[in-house]
Amino acid sequence: MVAELPDKLRDYILRSGVALAVSTADGDVPLTLVNQRFCDLTGYAREDVEGHNCRFLQGPATDDASRAALHDFVHDPAQNDGRFIVLNYRKDGLAFHNLVFMTRLRNREGRARFILASQFDMTTAQQRKGLRSNDETLSRDLADLKMMGQQFGLAMEASAASISNSIAMLARLNLDE
């Protein structure tokens, strides 16, 4: 399935300094590509996760409301982007609060082909202080991704700006804490 992503877009995701994962937009939405930052965040190797739905990151204390919000987004093609805080678990069993931004990548006909998700560990105050840097990095990455996506017929339906604005808002809120 990774082959369906344009090479330039796939290479960009793999190089990104933001934890990124791409899944199909159909069926059980299995992961088709994750980058090294995703692997660093979760403790899983690429070959452990590609082909599997991201719910393997959920665990016993992941609340039903978070599960339902993710499920509703994935199964409602009318939603273009979403933001979720979910309790996830690394491969070693350590829990972390994962701030997940998801956006649908659509072809020129408007059909969702992939779901792009970025993740940020929101567990500690120190990491929250890093949101301003994450915001700047993600804003640059999303602008580049949007341009590449459009070149290859994948429209992000203004979700790049929405995600960037959401992160900027969270950065401002958390820097005031």
Rank of each mutant, 00 (worst) to 15 (best):
L99S: 06
V29L: 09
R46T: 13
F56E: 00
A95H: 04
D40N: 12
R140Q: 15
L142W: 08
E157C: 10
V29N: 13
I163L: 14
Q150R: 15
K129H: 08
P6A: 15
P6T: 09
E157T: 10
D63T: 01
P6Q: 13
C39D: 07
F84T: 07
V34L: 01
R172L: 11
H97S: 11
N107F: 04
D63C: 08
G43L: 07
L99H: 03
L99V: 03
G130H: 07
A161L: 12
S23G: 08
L57Q: 04
F114E: 00
R37A: 14
L9H: 05
L33W: 03
I167N: 05
A160Y: 02
P77W: 08
L87W: 00
G110I: 01
F120W: 02
D176M: 11
P30W: 06
L31N: 06
Q119A: 06
D176K: 12
L33G: 00
G153S: 09
I167C: 06
E136L: 13
I115M: 09
L142I: 07
R83Q: 11
L116V: 06
L57F: 01
L57E: 04
T124Q: 01
M1Y: 09
E157H: 11
A161K: 12
C39R: 02
S16R: 04
F120G: 00
M147T: 15
T103P: 01
M102V: 11
L70R: 01
T103D: 05
L116E: 05
E50Q: 12
P30Y: 05
N107Y: 04
G59F: 05
M102F: 00
L41G: 05
F96R: 05
R132K: 12
R37P: 06
Q126H: 05
S23Y: 00
Q79W: 02
T32W: 00
V29G: 03
K146R: 12
Q119K: 02
I13S: 03
G153I: 06
M1R: 09
P60Y: 07
F73C: 08
L173N: 10
D64T: 12
E177N: 14
A125E: 12
D63A: 03
A112R: 01
Q127A: 08
D48G: 07
Q58E: 15
M1A: 13
S133P: 01
V18S: 07
R67D: 08
L57S: 02
T62M: 02
S118Y: 00
N53S: 11
N35H: 00
L145Q: 07
R132T: 10
H52A: 12
R90T: 10
R111K: 13
D40R: 11
L145H: 04
Y89C: 14
L175G: 15
M122S: 09
G149I: 09
H71S: 09
L99M: 05
G17N: 10
A21E: 11
A171L: 12
L116A: 04
N174H: 13
D144C: 08
L142P: 00
D135W: 14
S139E: 14
A143T: 15
N35P: 04
E47Y: 07
Y89K: 07
Q150A: 15
R37C: 09
I167Y: 03
D76E: 10
T137M: 07
T32H: 02
F38M: 05
H97G: 04
L105I: 02
R108T: 08
N98D: 14
L9Y: 06
S159P: 04
D40P: 00
I85D: 15
G110F: 06
Q36K: 15
K91N: 09
L170M: 14
M156E: 04
R172V: 12
D144S: 10
L57N: 02
L33N: 01
